[in-house]
């Protein structure tokens, strides 16, 4: 089933068009990463899906409910944390969770128990009675995350959950996200960190200048971008005939224009994923009499997927 679907979402702030027709389909379960450069519209998209901002045009359904017609049903199904949902500095960590429990109608006794239980589960019970303003950045972010879990949501929105955190705190957030995904929560997170998306996401949506430019499973997207073949000719064997021979071999497998750098004696060609194996490439170069120093066949990295999906920003 589809957890989140959006069609033609548009939103402008004054003259700035934050979203220019966003279509989105996030399957139930797993982690979907919304990637994009600053100002691409990631946060606006999350705010619309979390019913905080109405879109100017387009429709969105979250957990089967329309965000405009049935915002309350949507709010019953979602949790929101990150950049735009925060905890209260002037209360203790426990009180933050307790008050949210009261607001979610758990009743005083269950709200109390739930606050204590969540702090224990996420390793914050030691600091639970201290005011949040005395906590470290990583601890606050974790509290922020668990504040959205007081009633476990079907769908969790995390807006840049690890921005500005040290590596240890990031790893703690990641393990919490993985644990939640494993328990069946659908998670939509925005991030600027490609490694974060690569580690966590089962689906990736790249958004740029208010539009979705690429969408799919990470492997799928990498396949779509294709790989790269690099050949470095051996020193002293980089004469004109060798260049021509090497170029002929690469043109036979290339999916686009070759790039040559005579200074480093290197020749690069974009290829479709699976177009050629390394031994086969070596064999062909050998058969063409090309003496090589180095040969590589690379799968694309998520960085390359990202760059391909965000050309306008470059």
């Amino acid at each position: 089933m589809v957890a989140i679907e959006a069609a033609g979402l548009r939103k402008s702030f004054g003259k700035v068009e934050a979203l220019r027709g966003v279509d989105l389909a996030v399957p139930e379960g797993g982690v979907c990463a919304l990637l994009g450069p600053n100002g691409a519209g990631k946060t606006t998209a999350i705010r619309i899906l979390a019913t905080l901002t109405p879109p100017d045009a387009g429709t969105a359904r979250v957990a089967g409910h329309d965000v405009i017609a049935e915002p309350r049903r949507v709010r019953e199904a979602i949790g929101l944390a990150g950049q735009h949902a925060a905890v209260d500095d002037d209360l203790s960590g426990w009180e933050n969770l307790f008050i949210i429990g009261l607001m979610l109608h758990l009743g005083r006794r269950r709200a109390r128990a739930r606050a204590t239980e969540l702090l224990e589960r996420f390793g914050l019970d030691g600091a639970g009675n201290r005011l949040v303003k005395t906590w470290s950045g990583g601890m606050r972010r974790r509290l922020d995350l668990i504040a959205s879990l007081v009633v476990e949501p079907e769908i969790l929105f995390l807006d840049e959950p690890t921005t500005g955190l040290d590596p240890r705190s990031r790893a703690e957030i990641w393990s919490a996200v993985r644990e939640l995904a494993a328990s069946g929560t659908t998670i939509l997170l925005t991030t600027q960190y490609l490694d974060e998306a690569d580690r966590l996401a089962s689906q990736i949506v790249i958004i740029d200048a208010g539009r979705v430019t690429l969408q799919g499973r990470p492997g799928e997207l990498k396949d779509r971008i294709g790989g790269r073949v690099d050949v470095v000719l051996a020193d002293g064997a980089a004469g004109e005939p060798a260049w021509t021979a090497a170029e002929t071999v690469l043109r036979g497998i290339a999916a686009g224009d070759l790039a040559a750098d005579r200074d480093t004696r290197s020749l690069t060609a974009p290829v479709k994923t699976g177009a050629i194996t390394l031994p086969e490439l070596v064999r062909r170069l050998d058969a063409a009499g090309v003496d090589v120093e180095d040969v590589s066949v690379r799968k694309p990295t998520l960085d390359e997927v990202f760059l391909a999906g965000t050309e306008t920003a470059a």
Binding site: I78, L80, A85, A86, M103
Partner: peptide
């Protein structure tokens, strides 16, 4: 302060009456 720090947004994302 609640508005600037995102506390308002958190409450607005909860299924409670906006008046409350």
């Amino acid at each position: 302060r609640d508005s600037g720090r995102g506390v308002v947004d958190r409450f607005r994302s909860l299924p409670i009456a906006r008046l409350a």
